[in-house]
Design a protein around this nucleic acid. Sequence first.
DNA 1: GTCCAGCCTGACAACGATGTCACCTTCACC
DNA 2: GGTGAAGGTGACATCGTTGTCAGGCTGGAC
Lengths: 341, 341
Amino acid sequence: MAETTGRATMRDVAALAGVSIKTVSRVVNGEPGVAVAVRERVQDAVQRLDYRHHLAASNLRRGSSRTGLVGALLQDVSNSFSAALLRSLEDALRDRGTAILSASLDEEPERERSLVHDLVTRRVDALVLMPSTDRQDYLSSDVRAGMPVVFVDREPRGVAADSVTIDNVGGARMGTEHLLAQGHRRVACLTDLAEIYTAASRRKGFDEAYAARGIRPHERLVVTGLRGPGAAEAAVSHLLELDQPPTAIFAGRNDLAQGALRALHRSDLETSVALVGFDDFPLADLVNPPLTVIRQDVGRIGRLTAELLLDRLDGDTSAPRRVVVEPTLVARGSGEIAPAP
Amino acid sequence: MAETTGRATMRDVAALAGVSIKTVSRVVNGEPGVAVAVRERVQDAVQRLDYRHHLAASNLRRGSSRTGLVGALLQDVSNSFSAALLRSLEDALRDRGTAILSASLDEEPERERSLVHDLVTRRVDALVLMPSTDRQDYLSSDVRAGMPVVFVDREPRGVAADSVTIDNVGGARMGTEHLLAQGHRRVACLTDLAEIYTAASRRKGFDEAYAARGIRPHERLVVTGLRGPGAAEAAVSHLLELDQPPTAIFAGRNDLAQGALRALHRSDLETSVALVGFDDFPLADLVNPPLTVIRQDVGRIGRLTAELLLDRLDGDTSAPRRVVVEPTLVARGSGEIAPAP
DNA sequence: GTCCAGCCTGACAACGATGTCACCTTCACC
DNA sequence: GGTGAAGGTGACATCGTTGTCAGGCTGGAC
């Protein structure tokens, strides 16, 4: 009893209650066909021994191959977008008693591969993936083996799977055009590594907006490879010191917009240089100036993702679906600053 | 091969390679003592069948009782505090190949109990808990059975376990005193349900700051039971319409501060009414006005939590430890607004 | 040629649980 | 009193894996 190691098993309970293991199993699983007196005796023993059901053993025997586990590999669970997504998945899966294994990829391909491997080894019932790799061919055998995968934020390449994404090119074009329409011509563009699907798409939208007006962006104002807010802040500080500094900035992700804003504040230029960010975030309406953003409806994306996931878990084996959500422009002030004459 | 159900098992691999199951096991686990030719034959079969190790079965047999799973029950994974905590846990556990099962409690006691039950059933190696219950007596049998539990943000009651908390009373006292020292006398206090440990402590600190000056808070300005930013916004809007509105606000949690700030903006009072929040958050320096907060160092808390967790996982069975981190006041502007004469 | 050591390999039981099936009561009914 | 159905209960095999141990084969020493 004072043993710190080892929990009671059904065998122990059976011994204490003076019944067979199978009867304990019946009681624990609430199966009918157990005499009331016996049931009570077993329940008593369960209590006395602090018996806890062993889900893994149970699943193994049932061969149901259902572990009630779902993996969620996101960019960074502490980023508001990933965090909100995680939360809506959680809400959608709660009722099913399905638990979520979450992890952050930080845009590192190797980490994605190793974490996927780990999750497969744990026999998750399904996977939600915001990939950091270019291609996900490595996933096909697992998908073939019956593990549903739903991609979020980025489309799958090299593997057939569902996805929920937004129109990144369109969103970026809209954001950039919003600035161009106000007369800005020196618009800076901040994005992450060109290998990253969303970063490349948003950069493309930026270019397209210029092209649509028959003009070209200033190359020196286009900065890629920005890994986080710190890098964006440094890059913008540098841009502001150019002979021909930007009069407006288009930031390709919420953390880059935040870094940019911080740089503007440091130079006291937050009310002179326009700024449009991609991705809304909780306090965008309260910063100074209130931030104009291209918003993707995270709640909606989360719900759609969960919906696809649940369908697949319920046995839907139809062809992969691609769901694309249209982003919207939310004008709050920072994006409506006119260029200096 | 076209089977969508069922993965290959060691039995299948053994059959294909023409060896016994045990030999496959040896190869898969990289054990020595297998002839090179045989090893290659097995590895080939593994590849061909897309064999994936079954961790649960392996753990079951090994009886190691180590699942490489840790549970993290937090207040709300989409809240920046919980999310940052989750992230630092993840970083600390990554190297060990330990995965994290996370879930949100939303301050609902029932959810905590049911999620803990679920995690025990899954045989997590340890648990990180930001409790929503008053008392956690229900945990003692599991702790006795050898499951380490580390409490974060709130101390355990009714069970012996480690904890990492901050000095909530002291922090709230410091924040309130900061406002009183500037001459504010009508300071509003916003907190969540009085049953919540942190909410009650912060409320207590607020009262103590007043008491230390031999004065008393205005009862009508003390609002409890605020469940989220929306409630805080509504409450503050209401307070601002009183005959004797507050000249300063002390908000007992980051989301309440955000709600309060939103209400101030709506009334264009953000530069006239002082505001001090409890808990820092990523953009607090960029909002308008920059928010003065009582900061708890989330990264530090996360690291300390992980440290305790790892020690316990490594077999440390010494008496429970209580780690208390001192919060600091970060003055940014919102808390330094003087009362109207 | 015999013997033994050392190296590989596989048969078997077991981890904790559950599905299958057979057995034993009991009791109603003819 | 005999029969059969219904209701309880347990023995056993099994899920996928690994620890234990026995045994086969090889080759070198005598």
